[in-house]
Amino acid sequence: MLSMLLRRLGLGAITVWLVSLIIFAGVEMLPGDACTAFLEREAKGQLLENCRIELNLNRPAAARYLDWAGHALQGDLGVSANGQRPIAELVGFRLRNTVLLASGAMLFGIPLAIFLGIIAALRRDKPLDIAISTVAISAMTIPEFVSATLFILIFSVWLGWVPGIVLVSADAPISAFFPVIFLPIGVLTLVMTAHILRTVRSSVIETLASDYAQMATLKGVPFWRIVFRHVLPNALLPTINVVALTVAWLLGGVVVIETVFNYPGLGRMMIDSISDRDLPVTQAIALIIASVYVGVNLLADILTMLANPRLRTLHLRKG
């Protein structure tokens, strides 16, 4: 188990490194640089030259990447290209805000999704299941920016319950995000619930049809006991991975939602930094998102293993 863990961590590190390389190359390949993005029409002659010297853009791309990587390895993410502010400080608050939004959505979304998924499975093909499944599929297929805009229209413009657009700055205290954060949380819950719900539903249905569940029924075990003792522990295993992917998606900054609601999180910062050609910031966020993906998936695999004795022994034998 330990060697497996170490191997996975090593692979994870390589993944993160590759991501940083790809992102760097990608941003480099875009036309323009931090100076032309900032100066726009005035990006000519001396003004452009001065800016490039100031931001160290005159050196070859490879040298700049090595520079950055060297510092990053020592935990120094550098300063943002145009604002000259330490990135750790800039990104820190954005990360906190994204975590806040993500945890809000998870807190509502995950229990709701699992609960509804089980209900739908147990009432399979009955009106309740059909209703739940239809709503879930609709919620999944409507693009986020549409549901987000609809939410703003209904809850903010028509009903006036909560403000529609987040107007607080990135470093505002957490309390300042309430109640305006409820709308983005609502939209996120809608989207993620649908994904998880559908996995739970099919998994529960599958397990209900398994030999041991039928055996228990034949033995005369009460229905609810079958569901809670035999079906759910097995059925929820595959769910862990879907939940993990969703969590990673949430923590990676939900670009569209953050833009529509003007939410000062990682996703919007990523977009802004790319259009500003602010490579240090783009790289730092890419690192965070890649690490979150790798980390959360690893965690999910470990949890699945702990919950499933068969997988555990398989790996033990291998290791």
Partner: peptide
Amino acid sequence: LIGIPDAQARLQALLGGQ
């Protein structure tokens, strides 16, 4: 003076009276 980079979000903010 509120920073809202996205034009659509600015209109939403106006519609919502923000």
